[in-house]
Design a protein around this nucleic acid. Structure first.
Lengths: 143, 143
DNA sequence: GTTGGTGCAAAAATTTTGCAGGGTG
DNA sequence: CACCCTGCAAAATTTTTGCACCAAC
């Protein structure tokens, strides 16, 4: 990969996606955001530059390619976040880190350094994926 | 509480809610379901006996009273499940059990016996609530 | 009888789908 | 130049809100 390439372009190339203006923009938004984003957030950050439908389709594409993952929420909003590098390259997606939702700033963060503790299920259950979402007050709001 | 009372009536009384036909019905549906239910599921099980709007409002009321809790999902459907007894009486809601979503039958179960392992967050974060959702194949589908 | 819950109607918001035109490789 | 992506239009679905009537206590 050409290291002078934009990071977003590299990611798109690696995922065998054609490089288009909207994909680049949306990817850049994720790259520069430290928190998970809802469809709505992306629309706002695009300053309505792109059609709502395009955003739906782009997020769908990114999900399928494993570029982003979605985070479970208890409200009905789906949040998306960039996958870590390892996650992108493996193709098959496994989030093994904890997600944190701050009740104060309402942001959802990926705590990449906090791995999900193992859990023992009753016999008969096979585990595919584990999600853990912690709510509380984040470091920034605590200050 | 009169022990000959319907269980649903007892729950409603304890939550200081007036007993109405729809509330009773919806509560009975939860009481007799072993898996978490989406709004849509409830509508179906009501055989369209009640207005869609009533179901929205009833679920909202139950949530506020702590009779049911909602379970995080990665799709946009919100799932609801009955709270355990302790949960109802305390008022303030804490789910400390794991939820399991089966990829085969697509049901979401409360694994009441599996408590969520503790997790250590970086300093500066305070924890309010923890949700853990495991996906895989459940006991019944495994057979 | 008063209060609060339900049903109906309608609006608002979200998500999906089809198709023609335009950009990417 | 062939194919895929985007934008626009429209439909379908989900959720919210207002109001008059009816049931619960």
């Amino acid at each position: 990969m050409n290291s002078r390439m934009k990071q977003s372009d590299t990611i798109l190339k690696d995922s065998a996606l054609s490089i288009t203006s909207s994909r680049r923009k949306i990817l850049d938004i994720f790259l520069s955001s430290e928190s998970a984003l809802a469809h709505q957030d992306i629309e706002t950050k695009c300053s309505d530059q792109y059609d709502r439908v395009t955003i739906y389709r782009t997020l769908q594409t990114f999900l399928e390619k494993g570029i982003i993952h979605n985070i479970p929420t208890t409200d009905n909003s789906i949040k998306y976040a960039l996958c870590s590098d390892s996650c992108i390259t493996t193709g098959h997606h496994h989030d093994n880190h904890v997600h944190f939702r701050c009740d104060a700033c309402e942001k959802t963060l990926c705590l990449d350094d906090v791995s999900i503790p193992s859990v023992k299920l009753p016999s008969g259950y096979s585990i595919n994926e584990i999600n853990m979402v912690v709510t509380g007050v984040c470091k920034s709001c605590r200050k």
